[in-house]
Design a protein around this nucleic acid. Structure first.
Lengths: 207, 207, 207, 207
DNA sequence: TATGAATGAGTCTTCATTCAT
DNA sequence: AATGAATGAAGACTCATTCAT
């Protein structure tokens, strides 16, 4: 890769990083393109050489950040030996929660800049971009569970994800109404309950 | 109350109602003070006689709407005879979900105009205003459970609420990834599991 | 009319006048809304209280200025006693040329800001505005000639108008290649020739 | 001419051609230097190696295109045998009108990118450039008529040219208010009238 | 020569807020 | 109390022009 391309890639990254920090701090609405360009140390016009508008960069961010969290969790899972489906879900839950709690900016970002509408839009807009194949990763992961005796596995996964994100959100962001450490065991307990309730009784659910 | 005061109160209400409809339709960001004043049928300057800015009226709205949902659920609960704590929680859950799904404007409003940051801010900003005592209502409700043999009742309530809101949000808003009717039984099942896991074993949990 | 309305009308007029001068000086393309507002002595935002954009004010201008020239010529015609159709056309031609040559700004304006496409657009956009009924005036005027023995009277009128405007344009604007006074008799001679060639031979063309 | 010079000349031509097409399509105002460079297949910076700005290339274009029309008409005239001055003028008029109506791009170009102010500016800016000697050609052509018994021949020519261009412009561009075919005979008739009125009576006007 | 990344001045447009009436 | 005209700061976006490679 040439020196020029290196520079361009760096500049693009600077812009994305600046946008991420600003979105996390102030929310997307209160972040202007000027702000992003300033923080990235480039001229306003330069922004438009790399992105069409704020939403363009926001979609990329959502896609990247979500994809990262997800793929990190899966990679970590593949490195360990876990015996039951229940424990596997707990492992994933724990890993995601830890990622979020280790990077407060990330939580802020999700809280300030994302809702489900925007998430879907982002995934759709990036679907064919060749960036990171989020949907493929999701489907690959999900296929693992197809072989086991789980009733409505997709619903189980939906319930668990929604539950994890919503219940650890306030604890991470503002330690309210409980600290993350206080609430974690309860979250895990509910995750286990959800998994158990989806296991077909009498079946062998060892992985 | 004098005729003048009546008029003022009506004007204030018109503004709040207009803001609610517009926020629900277009989101807060895309609603201008002009829009609100126009819809309320008053001059732009008049807005400032009643509210400081958009956020002022938004806080009031969040507070009112949330309070309403909550107190509606409790009032409904008081009119029926329910035998177990578990069933009572299900009743509340069902009531809240139904309120949301019966009033699309309300869901739109929550989806377009509220995030948790804004919610907390709103509650804080109103805490001492004496408007509608949301926190008192919450505490009153909660005290009922103090007498029963529930382990960490507040945490239980926190988990349940977070779970309900997060898991029925997308189904109501966009029927995705499941319709509300599909997901409802699963939500209730998990609510029961959470309640059960908080019951002190062997205790009498009839209400 | 109230004091406020007076002020508004004055402000609107100031904006129109400023736009007219600037369009005439620099052409529409090189005139920004900032320029217009500055010259009119109002804030930029004020412009948008009166007009949607540059084209809005430009349409109004074209319509007004063209309408004025035309109706001035007709009013003048009505005050004099002219015997032949030929002389009447000469009178109109002379009157229009004099209006243009007496107001250099006007000529500049037509040269810098109008082409036929824009003219038609302007007339269309104002057709139902109730401003000045240019088309009606035109038709009324034209109907006068319907009774006389003129072959293709509309074409005659078209040829004469195009000829007048085009041939006195450069002389008025830059005295090139001839001064207006030099070229005038030639223009009138051609106008007479055109009229004559449209008279049905042997007919009585006294008015 | 060296290979390098060939290449340079080709590049210059590509830029001019690209500009011509774009100006004709979208008008000068809506054509950016980027557009021109893109269409010509060169880098934006390259544009500045050949031209100073948009107006530079526009002037060249006006000069070239106008010169072409004019010299085409003269070349065609030289190939035919015409008996009277009157017929010769009609021949020129017809030839110019046909050139314009046969090349819609050309008409678009004149309509979108030129006004008389720009034309004069263009001719002035090129007068000493040695490109194509438009004025010389004009004068040479004109000298032919000096020998005949024409009163004010230059004025005649001015009147005829202005008349032709102005009266066939709208018909060609938008078939309004008449089609070109409808208006042509009337245009020719007036041209004849103008020529006739400039002939010194009793003189021999055969060419 | 040729490139095209980078710049930043300039334009349009919106809208919260003020204030004279 | 109510109005709504006026303001001007702020934001999105464009594009001619420069300059390092």
């Amino acid at each position: 890769m040439s020196k020029v391309d290196d520079k361009k890639e760096k500049k693009r990254k600077d812009l994305v990083d600046a946008a991420f920090e600003l979105f996390s701090e102030k929310g997307m609405v209160n972040t202007s393109i000027s702000d992003i360009a300033d923080k990235a140390g480039v001229a306003k016009g330069t922004f438009y050489l790399y992105f069409n508008d704020k939403y363009d960069i926001a979609n990329l961010l959502i896609y990247q950040k979500t994809g990262n969290i997800f793929s990190n969790a899966i990679r970590a899972l593949e490195k360990v030996k876990i015996l039951t489906l229940e424990d596997e879900m707990i492992f994933i839950a724990d890993n995601i929660i830890n990622q979020l709690s280790n990077d407060p900016t990330l939580v802020n970002y999700f809280s300030k800049a994302i809702d489900w509408g925007r998430f879907k839009e982002a995934v759709d807009s990036k679907r064919d971009s060749g960036e990171f194949d989020f949907l493929k990763a999701y489907n690959d992961f999900f296929r693992r569970y197809a072989e086991y005796n789980i009733k409505d596995p997709e619903i189980m996964w939906f319930l668990i994800l929604e539950f994890i994100v919503s219940s650890c959100y306030s604890p991470i962001r503002c330690n309210q109404p409980y600290s993350l450490e206080e609430i974690k065991p309860h979250i895990y307990k509910v995750v286990r309950l959800i998994v158990k309730s989806h296991l077909v009784e009498g079946a062998d659910n060892l992985i």
